[in-house]
Design a protein around this nucleic acid. Sequence first.
DNA 1: CCATGTGAAAGCGTTCACAGCG
DNA 2: CGCTGTGAACGCTTTCACATGG
Lengths: 223, 223
Amino acid sequence: MLPEATVRRLPLYLRVLTDAIAEQQVTMASEELASRAGVNAAQVRKDLSYLGSYGTRGVGYDTGLLCQHLSRQLGLNQDFKVALVGLGNLGLALVNYRGFAHRGFHVVAAFDTDPAKVGRRVGDATVHGMAELALVVAREGVTMALIATPAAVAQDVAERLVSAGVTSLLNFAPVVLNLPPHVSLRQVDLAVELQVLGYYEHLRAGTALFAGNGAGPAATDTD
Amino acid sequence: MLPEATVRRLPLYLRVLTDAIAEQQVTMASEELASRAGVNAAQVRKDLSYLGSYGTRGVGYDTGLLCQHLSRQLGLNQDFKVALVGLGNLGLALVNYRGFAHRGFHVVAAFDTDPAKVGRRVGDATVHGMAELALVVAREGVTMALIATPAAVAQDVAERLVSAGVTSLLNFAPVVLNLPPHVSLRQVDLAVELQVLGYYEHLRAGTALFAGNGAGPAATDTD
DNA sequence: CCATGTGAAAGCGTTCACAGCG
DNA sequence: CGCTGTGAACGCTTTCACATGG
């Protein structure tokens, strides 16, 4: 079991390594991997040490070997079947997002309440009405879902997805979801992100009257 | 100066309070606020204690009073001028997102490289070419920006925004941005979120062979 | 000699437990 | 009596510093 903080950084390392491999780079030291991933070098070494010893002292890490191991750890050699609920602007953006299929995440089913959208195809998926959710999710063997619905229905949608067999959810609706503990849940909340930025912006505006320049607390966070 | 972890939760509390006020609820105990925000009650009390003493012992918090104070802390009484760069599916979703204008965030300028899009209006903003970025950002007094461009150009776009006077960035492109420390940066990375879910999904699939049921480590995180 | 891998230390964030106040 | 506000304990994360090995 890897620490959660480590899990969140593995995709970044993987991205850096993939770029390096494309540039024919065969080895990389923790120092370089760290600076390209925006973290501390000791952090990189500790994170990678959880996976075993895949580096060579005096040299660095073999980019190809490490890339392979990170992919395996993240389960990227298998394919994940993903459902998308809510085909507003955000839902459409999600289904067309390149980063998904690229890494083994396949949106195989989409759902919306709007009868005008039902029956259309978005990406590789057909749009179904909400009534068919349980049936289609079970039939397609979907295990992950993206919730891009209005906040008011997100909890209900989440519960129906979980009942139908989904075990991982990525929720974009601005509500806190209550789900059984065996379900993995991650939240992407644009309003929260903006308000956090607003706080620091507001802080700078206030302290600028007292302090000389704008050298304030930069909230750099990758999550 | 509030701890960053606390700042990230304030918008959640604010949302719960806003809902409660709409339901005519005048006071709320830390216990209820906590459960509705999906956190621990002691956490709520500690977070709120950083802002001062706005609760009444034996009763709870005055929803209206607390809401007002949280809004002030987050700088939501002032208006923020926001620029949007990149008008793909995601960019369009962002400009049409309701949660923004609602809380004082106004997208007053948009930019894209596609000549076919330049000159159009999206929401309340006119679409400009990239060449006009510095000029328009300075003229409109933009301080915050959303980067919804391809990864390859995000670093360049970010630097140009910062040169033009932007001090807060919300980046949706899947790259680590390197910026001067006085700039606040937040990252929303869909590929990372999915891969984290993939890790736990993969883990459950692997351990299911050994352990009896799927009661695994649920990564519930609001961030 | 150089960079990894890792104990030990330092720093944060969360949770507990209860004193204190309305 | 109930709930806030808070010191103290706990656990997780990050960083340091260096022994170890190619």
